[in-house]
Design a protein around this nucleic acid. Sequence first.
DNA 1: ACGACACTTCACCGGCGGTCGAACCGACGC
DNA 2: GCGTCGGTTCGACCGCCGGTGAAGTGTCGT
Lengths: 250, 250
Amino acid sequence: MAAVGQLLADRGRCRILLALADGRALPASVLAAEAGVRPSTASGHLRKLTERGLIEVLPTGRYRYYRLAGPDVARLVEVIGRLAPTQPVRSLREGTRAHALRLARRCYDHIGGRLGVAVTDTLRERGFIEGPDGTPDLAAVRGDRLAGGVADEGDYRLTAKGHQELVTLGAMLPPGLGAVRCCIDWTEQRHHIAGALGRAVLEAFDTAGWIMPAATHRALRVTARGVAGLHEHFGIAWPPASTSRTAAGS
Amino acid sequence: MAAVGQLLADRGRCRILLALADGRALPASVLAAEAGVRPSTASGHLRKLTERGLIEVLPTGRYRYYRLAGPDVARLVEVIGRLAPTQPVRSLREGTRAHALRLARRCYDHIGGRLGVAVTDTLRERGFIEGPDGTPDLAAVRGDRLAGGVADEGDYRLTAKGHQELVTLGAMLPPGLGAVRCCIDWTEQRHHIAGALGRAVLEAFDTAGWIMPAATHRALRVTARGVAGLHEHFGIAWPPASTSRTAAGS
DNA sequence: ACGACACTTCACCGGCGGTCGAACCGACGC
DNA sequence: GCGTCGGTTCGACCGCCGGTGAAGTGTCGT
């Protein structure tokens, strides 16, 4: 498994994986620019990533689109991102971009950032999902780990009321969906819904025209209709009151 | 996050993390032997791992015990282990050891290997937990990832009957436990219970004297009482019929 | 058919990092 | 007190890997 670790040891390759973390397929030239290296270097990285099975390639004409090889890889990026230390911002452009990412972004197949956390909070407050508080108990983590008390993933479940409400909102929920996977947000350090429910919510927001993907990166922009819908159906004021700016590292 | 990846890029450091994956705290000399390097080299590795916050140290007399810094790190090892390719066995000793690991092992705070999968299967067959089949649908993973069908974690939930049965068996279940986190086993590629429920089951098996930790590594040995108890309460024949031998890499 | 473009391969360079032995520090046992 | 043992630090060696530019292959426009 050190072989996989070697792939994650390079800054450029990490940037490539991060750029693909929203589930899209991107051509090699875009990934080279994203990684900040020459096309030849990026080509070598992409070759190694595909050889190890972390990403897969879809040749289309003279373009070669790369994407993550599966949900396992997305989970890996998610988990390692949570352990990675945050880095200070180096430029104004990075600052605004990191700010947009922290507000709302696609996290492979669900919504991350403040928007994801806000939606999850609302679902819990209104009794649509049941489970512990969204703030992981860091004190419990520091103590005896085996004795329990760890804020684990998957400790939520969708209630009947929540199922009904989300269906009327247009979400295509798979049958028999009970438990809800939650991942702790990369920047917010709070729970937000992921898994099948997170996927359905992202699709519902997308088909309703509430969100628009940004052109350059994986950040999400909330449309005017989205602002109204979030306020009406979820009681969320968007955009939220701004807080301190700290970029997340690569 | 490339900083974390660099730590995972070395074989010796991976072996150290793997040795600590069962949640124990081990002295530096043991970890050096586990990694197959000189104490000086291991000391450097341990220093880097602690500096990055992946492990923490408990100085005790002239020994210094190291352990994983928290559940996040255990999850990282779990996820990256699933993506790592399996390596062929290099010696007879490695073969028997890998065989024991594949049978039953501690996976930070729950039971992994064939035993973990067998217990999970029984729980599902008897209606103690509800959810999809334990075999992840690999075909769905290869297809359209956003359209759903992915065998996600956390799609199980504990039923009332299961709660009652496990309590009578002596498991200390935390209140309000509904959803059950499942991780796909490292070697078996099957679901097995983890999270709070997996922790409670491991504790129950341990206090009942069904399992004994191996002296040298994180493998678990099923005692005679454990064989009887597994057969009586779970209908599991132990040890299982042997299958092909393939070691899991480091 | 020609040029432009996307991407890959190759040879070369430079630097980071793993490894070890030896020395050093602190804790235990007699 | 001394010797032993566990652990860390230091300096030197060396192999590996990332970066690049130039050349090569295939595809798309006109």
